[in-house]
Design a protein around this nucleic acid. Sequence first.
DNA 1: GCCATTTCTTAACAATTGTTAATGCAAGAG
DNA 2: CTCTTGCATTAACAATTGTTAAGAAATGGC
Lengths: 201, 201
Amino acid sequence: MMKNNKELYDQLRTTLKQWVDLPDAQWNELAAIFHPKTVAKDDYLLHTGDEVYELYYVGEGLLRIYYLNERGKESNKAFPAQGGFAGPLATALLKMPSRYGIQALEDSVLLTTQYDDYFNLLDQHPLFDRLGRKILEWLLGRRELREQSLLQQSAKERYLDFIERYSSLLNRIPQYHIASYLGITDVSLSRLRSELSSDGY
Amino acid sequence: MMKNNKELYDQLRTTLKQWVDLPDAQWNELAAIFHPKTVAKDDYLLHTGDEVYELYYVGEGLLRIYYLNERGKESNKAFPAQGGFAGPLATALLKMPSRYGIQALEDSVLLTTQYDDYFNLLDQHPLFDRLGRKILEWLLGRRELREQSLLQQSAKERYLDFIERYSSLLNRIPQYHIASYLGITDVSLSRLRSELSSDGY
DNA sequence: GCCATTTCTTAACAATTGTTAATGCAAGAG
DNA sequence: CTCTTGCATTAACAATTGTTAAGAAATGGC
């Protein structure tokens, strides 16, 4: 069910509207730096350690963003699906090797832009700074919810929250990736699930 | 060693310069909405559940920002000291009861502004949107580092990192507050410390 | 200096999560 | 269809962290 390009760009505009309703002139400027891209299931858009050049908008499909530590342990940071973004902004700004990677969990249709184009855009009109600020405010709120969850909730509580919050993604993401998002091993998650099911969930 | 007001505002301007170097006109606009405030050790600037009205800049002293969950467990989110900010931006935007609280760990000298004034300021000049965006980018980077740390590091590693990163604050923050920042109990931290010291740290 | 209070440590035991390994199950390739 | 491969489950055991309680050490008020 591949979207055509017009639908794709319309969808991006709708997504951005939740923060700033860009007038046609600015919208056209913004749309001009985004280009359609498709990616196949399991392909990588970014490896940890690479320099970051691109930002992605998910029109259709599902990605995962993950951290990798020195011991080679991966932890999933987020699962951007339709309407979501993926692009290590903080790292791109620093022009440093990325602390995270991005992989497609499904065949996906994206809109992508070069970070250099994005940074240039910010200088073209103050509305882009405003849009950027609003998106960042939103992102920050999400990161803080996650931080609180990791600090204060047990693995079981985090899993139950995940089920509730991301019910639509539940059967699209392998268990071991969910476990890694929750900060536990796949074996522990399986044990939690069996405890929950014997408790009547 | 109480700073006088001029030093206090100069310090704020210096702090902001790391993101945007405001011309005098915009700096004066910004300075006008900030007011000096002192707070005594142990006093609360914000309780969880209160609505958020104010943003704080720390001129001198030390604060802690903490989350509180339904079971009454507190977890420290950050320890803003000289040059730092405290103010639940994400919550202020939502006009919802704050998920976190702010308490002074030392007698502190602050500059504070009403969020309404801050939001108005953003409409006065595009530079403020830019400043806001840059601060948020920086904050987001820090939150992501913390998220990765909570997902991938053991309590012992997190503690060693904390010692390294915040060595200057180490003897100003009680152990149990550090433990709560690390996501463990004070008893566990004490145990870690004794293990480390018998390992020669 | 002395007392009360707070903070930190220690110890025993419980609960949670990790590790390893074996097995079952399901989906995709040929 | 069969085989391979990847994913999920289960079990036994280890390591980490939590809980509770008692006492030691440090701090602040008087």
